[in-house]
Design a protein around this nucleic acid. Structure first.
Length: 276
DNA sequence: GCATTACCCTGAAAGC
DNA sequence: TGCTTTCAGGGTAATG
């Protein structure tokens, strides 16, 4: 489940080989990704251009080209963006192949097809349906404590649901929400608007902290996630609560519990994260 | 405004 | 062993 650290790791592993040579060929499948097939004509129009930047906002990868068009990629649940030799065997569920003048190929592989691959004009990227609704990226200067505290105060939802909302802060998913709440010692059931300022400040710091650790560990691999070179992450070995139900809390030894909240598995320590 | 549920989808794991 | 069922969840939409 790629979240911010996984997408950032993919971004870093794409650089700088992505920029080495111009795009020479394209091939896109007809299958729908997140309800919509890849725009094959738009992708074909990238042939002859070069990638000039690899950016990230939240869980979105933005690959800018010299044609002033940007390839927007969301990995969904099982998406992989890979740099492979053009002669390498094509994995099942490969939906996009962009061949370079060198022997390299950029490939998008996604078994469950929850991801998205779109082509947009770079100049108006911020106004797209995907990016226009996003809140600040937590590893950017835009993620201020005051803005975050204000955002929390405006919703009565549980903290878990509030943090999964990409309009409040973008890039968090099920794993890092669980980890941030544990680090801040806050119950996922706490109502966002009732969280005291000191706790909200702690949560703001915890979000940045768990994401930075995730990036440093090159992401969390549970099943599908790999970077552009096919390498697994290592962050799964350091998680405090996610996926650890029944195991002892790393802080107090109490058994970690799991329940379903906002339609997702929630893991927490009932002692460290008391309250509602 | 918010919670819940369903949907998209496939592969791994569990159950029989 | 082999088939069937269940489960996982990012994002979105419908419903109450």
């Amino acid at each position: 489940m790629p979240e911010l650290p996984e997408v950032e790791t993919v971004r870093r592993s794409l650089e700088p080989r992505l920029f080495e040579s111009a795009i020479a060929s394209s091939h896109a499948s007809k299958l729908a990704l997140r309800g919509r097939p890849i725009d094959r004509r738009a992708v074909a129009a990238l042939v002859g251009a070069r990638f000039i930047a690899a950016r990230r906002i939240g869980k979105y990868l933005l690959l800018d080209t010299s044609a002033r068009r940007t390839l927007l990629v969301h990995l969904g649940m099982t998406g992989r963006l890979l740099l492979r030799d053009g002669d390498a065997a094509v994995e099942p569920h490969t939906h996009l192949r962009l061949g370079f003048e060198s022997s390299l190929e950029l490939r998008y592989v996604d078994a469950r097809r929850f991801g998205a691959v779109r082509v947009y004009a770079t100049d108006t990227l911020h106004a797209t349906e995907e990016l226009s609704i996003l809140g600040p990226d937590p590893l950017s200067a835009a993620f201020t404590a005051e803005g975050f505290i204000d955002g929390l105060s405006r919703t009565k939802r549980d903290l878990k649901a509030a943090l999964l909302d990409q309009a409040l802060v973008t890039g968090l998913g099920n794993i890092y929400v669980a980890e941030a709440l544990w680090l801040a010692r806050l119950s996922p059931r706490r109502r966002a608007h009732r969280v005291p300022r000191t706790d909200a400040l702690a949560l703001h710091g915890a979000i940045v902290s768990v994401l930075e650790k995730g990036v440093a560990n090159r992401g969390t691999t549970f099943s599908d996630y790999v970077d552009a070179d096919g390498n697994f992450g290592a962050n799964q070995h350091t998680l405090a609560v996610y996926g650890r139900d029944g195991q002892p809390c790393r802080a107090c030894g109490t058994r970690i519990r799991r329940f379903v909240q906002a339609g997702r598995s929630t893991f927490y320590c009932p002692l460290c994260q008391r309250g509602r």
